[in-house]
């Protein structure tokens, strides 16, 4: 053995207070190190709890990469497992988002206008969040909905994860458009407005119709704005951004009021 578990960590381990990933390292190490097991026995009154933990961990499979990264980032292991089950955080979905964003950035450079990017970027978080929790893509939705964990809480956990991922990718794409300065960030408030509105409508309209309708209205409003003038589209002006912020706040309020509706099947059509 080239290293040994720190005595303080062993004490925390025996008391059940050592958190992953240190916990995993200690588990693995203790199974092969008699010296540390001896120290563990000497430092701990609650040594049985430590062995109990080893016993419980012996056959637990190592979490996947995504889960391990989340835990290393400070997310509790049980929350990381809930997030790992989020359908749209899979590689295929993320790859599709990256592809779309790269293609759109290419269009921006070709057309010498950020409009295509600003129009598309809010739709990606909308779609991602809409499909993060519900019967359409989540194979365990029916089991989740009858669990004691409130559906709205699960929705919010996943929404935050998908938003952070989606907005993060959008931000990276924005960095590829330095010529447009802060204008290239004009997608952010519409993205929040569309996402919140889509979620607020989901219990009533369902997991597909609600975001489709919201996305359709967004595209329709952009088309109308384009027809009505040659300048920047109104949605990306100060007035448009203010309106987006107001819509986001209003929709967030409505979503909160409708939170209990996420605790049962979204719509009768899902039954």
């Amino acid at each position: 053995m080239t290293w040994h578990v720190d005595a303080e960590d062993l004490r925390a381990y025996a008391q059940g207070e050592l958190a992953p990933p240190l916990l995993w390292s200690a588990d693995t190490h203790l199974t092969g190190c008699a010296e540390c097991r001896g120290v563990l026995a000497s430092v701990s009154e609650g040594v049985d709890a430590g062995w109990d933990r080893i016993d419980a961990e012996l056959d637990a499979p190592r979490p996947g990469l995504w889960e391990r990264l989340l835990v290393r980032a400070g997310v509790a292991d049980h929350t990381a497992r809930l997030l790992a089950a989020t359908p749209v955080l899979r590689r295929s979905w993320l790859a599709a988002m990256v592809f779309l964003l790269v293609a759109t950035v290419g269009v921006v450079y070709t057309a010498d206008s950020p409009t295509a990017f600003l129009a598309l970027a809010p739709l990606l978080p909308l779609a991602g969040v809409a499909l993060a929790y519900g019967p359409v893509l989540d194979p365990t939705y029916e089991m989740a909905v009858v669990s004691p964990v409130h559906g709205f809480r699960l929705l919010m956990i996943r929404t935050v994860a998908v938003l952070v991922t989606g907005l993060g990718l959008n931000l990276l794409a924005t960095l590829a458009l330095p010529a447009y300065g802060l204008r290239a960030l004009a997608w952010l408030l519409p993205a929040l407005a569309l996402t919140a509105t889509g979620l607020a409508l989901t219990p009533r309209l369902g997991q597909v119709l609600a975001p489709s309708l919201v996305g359709g209205v967004w595209i329709g409003l952009l088309a109308i704005a384009r027809e009505s003038g040659d300048g920047p589209l109104v949605q990306f002006t100060a007035a448009g951004q203010g309106a987006a912020a107001a819509v986001a706040a209003l929709a967030a309020g409505l979503l909160f009021l409708a939170r209990d509706r996420f605790d049962v099947f979204f719509s009768r059509s899902a039954v």
Binding site: G16, A60, P61, R81
Partner: peptide, 19 residues
């Protein structure tokens, strides 16, 4: 194991060892 563990978390078993 991971799937049943996931359902156990949904059933509010958050303590890793007990779960």
């Amino acid at each position: 194991f991971e799937f049943v563990d996931y359902v156990a978390i949904l059933k509010e078993l958050t303590d890793r060892t007990a779960r």
